[in-house]
């Protein structure tokens, strides 16, 4: 009898610990949300929608428009995803369908290594190595030939929203690729063999079995990559050129720009003595948080659609 009550007690105790652990995470999230909101209140009251749509940022005359930073974050991440998505899928398909088994561990090891490199290293590499190469061999020829199109107009700085997107692409490709690889490997062999037995080509098997089966996983991997791109700070700060001229004075992809995270990282340490400046940076952080949350909601929504079809 004694033993049973002890077991029940332990069982309840164990459950309690699990509950507390989960509760802590929820409380931390709410507290973070609350404190961000509270700290951004002064700026939101003062600036209103200007923080979302304004194009000027000048702490000396109390002008805090966040649009260039918000657009910089969105566009650089979007370009990165647009490049990284097809590349990652190609890598994953090659890995699971075409790659000799002996080579597989090498590829997966390299992917893991690339995913684990600290972002500041990507930043230094982008600043010192890639920026001059891109400037000389890519930006300058393009500006010389089709520079009359505003999207590709000069001058070539090297550091630009284009370079930032490129570095982000390199950073998130291994993340999306390695998750997709794992998911592709989980496709039931029976299904694939049945398709082959019916005379399907490799392409048809991919198209009709492997990819539909992995759709949700690929989506999740892409969202994870997008999350990394949106939140990336150090590497982007080092290669984006931190300028507020994009996209209102120049829409060129070769123009230096800025993102929410690089703006916060750059200005936060010295902003603590200026309430409005500080609060405006907090508002930008809040906007980024809301943005990330809404992306994860949209993902849930899409996932449901995928499931019921």
């Amino acid at each position: 009898m004694k033993n049973i009550s002890k077991i029940i007690f332990l069982e309840n105790f164990f459950k309690l610990i699990l509950k507390i652990a989960t509760l802590i995470i929820i409380v931390i999230f709410l507290l973070m949300f609350y404190s961000l909101f509270e700290r951004s209140m002064p700026s939101l009251m003062e600036n209103g929608f200007y923080i979302l749509f304004g194009s000027s940022w000048d702490p000396n005359i109390k002008l805090f428009g966040g649009a260039p930073a918000i657009l910089g974050t969105i566009i650089s991440s979007a370009i990165a995803i647009a490049f990284a998505f097809p590349i990652s899928l190609s890598i994953a398909i090659f890995y699971t369908e075409y790659c000799p088994l002996r080579v597989r561990p090498i590829i997966s090891e390299i992917m893991n290594l690339l995913a684990a490199i600290p972002s500041v290293i990507y930043g230094i590499w982008g600043l010192w190595t890639i920026s001059p190469i891109i400037k000389l061999n890519f930006q300058e020829p393009i500006i010389a030939s089709i520079g009359f199109i505003p999207l590709f107009s000069g001058p070539a700085y090297g550091l630009s929203i284009f370079l930032a997107s490129l570095i982000l692409t390199i950073m998130i490709t291994p993340i999306i690729a390695s998750i997709s690889m794992d998911i592709f490997l989980k496709t039931p062999i029976l299904l694939k063999e049945a398709m082959f037995a019916l005379g399907a080509t490799k392409w048809e098997v991919l198209r009709h079995v492997v990819i539909p089966f992995a759709r949700r996983g690929i989506l999740a991997a892409t969202i994870l990559g997008l999350g990394r791109a949106l939140g990336e700070t150090m590497a982007v700060t080092m290669v984006i050129g931190n300028s507020y001229i994009w996209p209102f004075q120049s829409i060129s992809l070769f123009s230096p720009a800025t993102t929410i995270t690089s703006k916060i990282a750059s200005e936060f340490p010295e902003s603590v003595i200026d309430l409005m400046h500080n609060s405006s940076l907090m508002s930008l952080a809040l906007i980024l948080l809301l943005f990330s949350i809404s992306i994860s909601f949209i993902t849930k929504f899409i996932e449901k659609g995928v499931k019921y079809r």
């Binding site: 702490p59 000396n60 700085y157 700060t237 080092m238 931190n242 200005e267």
Partner: peptide, 20 residues
């Protein structure tokens, strides 16, 4: 453009810190 620890630069590249 006035003076301050942060000002609104109309041109150029921004780099973090003296080392940047």
């Amino acid at each position: 453009l006035g003076s301050g620890t942060t000002i609104r630069w109309p041109v150029g590249l921004g780099a973090p810190g003296n080392p940047g």
